[in-house]
């Protein structure tokens, strides 16, 4: 698995566009800035929905109504984050693919996506009457709490990608080397 990921990353690294993106000071930084600023947009809206479900924000707006209305702009923000995130990965594929933080971030993003799907399902099956209550039903509160935890950790791990503590070129000890996907005698970093 690690070998396949490494081979794929090395293949991406051979692309001229990847190198050009990485070496372009303004383009790379604009993409990264957009990635981070969209976080204020989409994650900020997600926080409002989650806090409303937990009864901590905007009690005057029906919870389901808030979630439905903010759904589209939030998804738009997440789409921009995803596209810019993929471009950032494309610019530095090998190091990113072998970053322990990036791997943990991806795992948490998958968990957050599953949680979002379950949350949406719970909301559609929750019936009516709960919308105007101060707090959402327990299942939705759990979903909102998990969502907050997942995304806070995703932001932390995303920030830590910039640090090289467990990078393969530094020769990290086990089990970090395996978890980072370091390959014996690898040629690209």
């Amino acid at each position: 698995m690690n070998q396949a990921i490494y081979n794929f990353a090395v293949w991406l690294d051979t692309h001229g566009w990847s190198t050009a993106l990485h070496e372009s000071f303004y383009l790379y930084n604009w993409i990264e800035t957009t990635h981070v600023l969209t976080l204020m947009f989409s994650l900020g809206l997600l926080f409002l929905i989650d806090l409303r479900m937990l009864g901590l924000a905007l009690p005057g707006i029906p919870a389901g109504d808030l979630a439905r209305r903010l759904h589209l702009p939030m998804l738009l923000g997440f789409s921009i984050m995803l596209i810019t995130g993929l471009l950032l990965f494309y610019a530095i594929p090998v190091r990113t693919a072998q970053s322990l933080w990036f791997r943990m971030k991806v795992v948490l993003m998958v968990a957050a996506a599953i949680n979002a799907w379950c949350f949406h399902h719970s909301m559609t099956t929750a019936g009516t009457g709960w919308d105007t209550a101060r707090k959402a039903p327990p299942a939705l509160q759990w979903g909102a709490g998990l969502s907050l935890c997942f995304w806070m950790l995703i932001v932390v791990f995303g920030r830590l990608i910039a640090y090289d503590w467990f990078d393969c070129r530094t020769g990290p000890p086990e089990p970090f080397a395996t978890l980072s996907g370091c390959i014996n005698e690898q040629t690209h970093y």
Partner: peptide
Amino acid sequence: WGAVFATVQAVHLLGMALLGGAVLV
């Protein structure tokens, strides 16, 4: 403490996200 600095940076981003969501709504 690089790890502390990095974590605080992430919390800074979370604060900005909350601020951004409130401003947008």
